[in-house]
Simulated scan of single mutants.
Amino acid sequence: MSPRVVDDISAALAEHGLIPRGGFVFGEGDATPAGPAGRPARSVLLVGQAGAAPWLHFQRWLKRQPTDLEEPLDTWSREIVGGVAAEFGARAASPSDKPYLPFQQWAMRAEGLKPSPLGILMHPAYGLWHAYRGALLFDVEIEMQGPPEQIHLCDLCIGKPCLKSCPVDAYSEAGFAHQACLAHVRGPMGAPCRTGGCLDRNACPQGLAFRYPSQVQAFHMKSFGGF
């Protein structure tokens, strides 16, 4: 696949606030998912966002949907990525597909990123304020430059404020205390998290220009809390 086609895919995604997030050709040792023809795919191009760029596009779409629609962001993402996949002869995949595909490993390989202490991949420009919304799987090889060598900003961070701001210490070197976090978010002291997002994530000083607005963070916390 020529770079020009990748540019065309980028233009199609931009209409929805989405961007390509790098890609690669699968190797012989990879557990390769099926491409559009049903055979193992030859290559993958990740699709995602930087900051909250898709939010207004998603909100306009959401106003036309039933009020009881479950997992609306996943549904919107599947619709948009699926449409672009159909236009360019690819098969769409979603991070919520089961059995789950290794999106984080793909992202690390495609963009050269590493996880932060919160588990979210640290991006040198976007910080923790980015996401992967899907992937395009192709039967042909795509011409993509390999990721540049990235500085992992977490290695340079001495104070690690992302591990010191949560009232219930949900994140630590031991991992993520899911039940403690969920109970706090749902409880009477969890209002700041419900309305403004994860305190640990917001404590990170990187990528502030891409930080999600409070209404976007509240949307994600509502989904996490099951409200």
Rank of each mutant, 00 (worst) to 15 (best):
P20M: 08
P192V: 10
E71Y: 13
H16M: 07
D169Q: 13
I151N: 15
L156Y: 13
G38Y: 03
L153G: 08
D8N: 15
M221A: 09
A131K: 04
L18C: 00
C166E: 13
G225E: 13
I151G: 06
P213N: 08
A180V: 00
Q145I: 12
C157Y: 04
A11M: 09
K222N: 15
C154I: 07
H123Y: 02
G29I: 13
V47P: 08
Q145A: 14
E28I: 04
R201E: 03
E71K: 12
A209P: 06
T32D: 05
M1F: 06
A177K: 05
V84F: 03
A93P: 07
F227I: 05
L45A: 00
A31N: 14
T195Y: 13
L121I: 02
P147F: 01
V140Q: 15
L182C: 04
L46P: 10
E79F: 02
P54A: 02
R64I: 12
R194N: 07
S10C: 14
T195R: 15
S172K: 02
D200A: 10
Q104H: 08
V25C: 09
D169T: 11
W61E: 00
L62D: 10
G29D: 15
A85Q: 03
F224R: 14
E141G: 12
F224A: 09
G207K: 07
Q206G: 10
W76V: 02
P167V: 01
A191H: 12
S165M: 06
G175S: 05
A177S: 00
G29K: 14
L56F: 12
R211M: 10
V5D: 05
K222I: 11
D200C: 07
A218N: 12
W129F: 11
S165H: 09
M1A: 06
R201D: 01
S116G: 03
D8W: 07
W76Y: 13
Y126D: 00
F176G: 11
A53M: 03
L18N: 04
A135N: 09
E111V: 15
T32M: 04
A180R: 06
C198T: 10
G127V: 03
P66W: 01
Q179K: 01
V6N: 11
L46M: 01
E79M: 14
R64C: 13
S77M: 04
S2Q: 13
P33D: 11
Q105S: 15
H130G: 02
F58L: 02
G23R: 02
H130A: 08
Y100W: 13
D74E: 03
W76Q: 06
K164C: 10
A209H: 12
I80K: 02
Q150Y: 07
R78H: 11
A41D: 08
G127A: 03
C204E: 08
R64H: 15
G89H: 01
C162M: 03
F227G: 11
Q59G: 04
P124R: 01
S2C: 11
H130Q: 00
A107Y: 10
E28C: 07
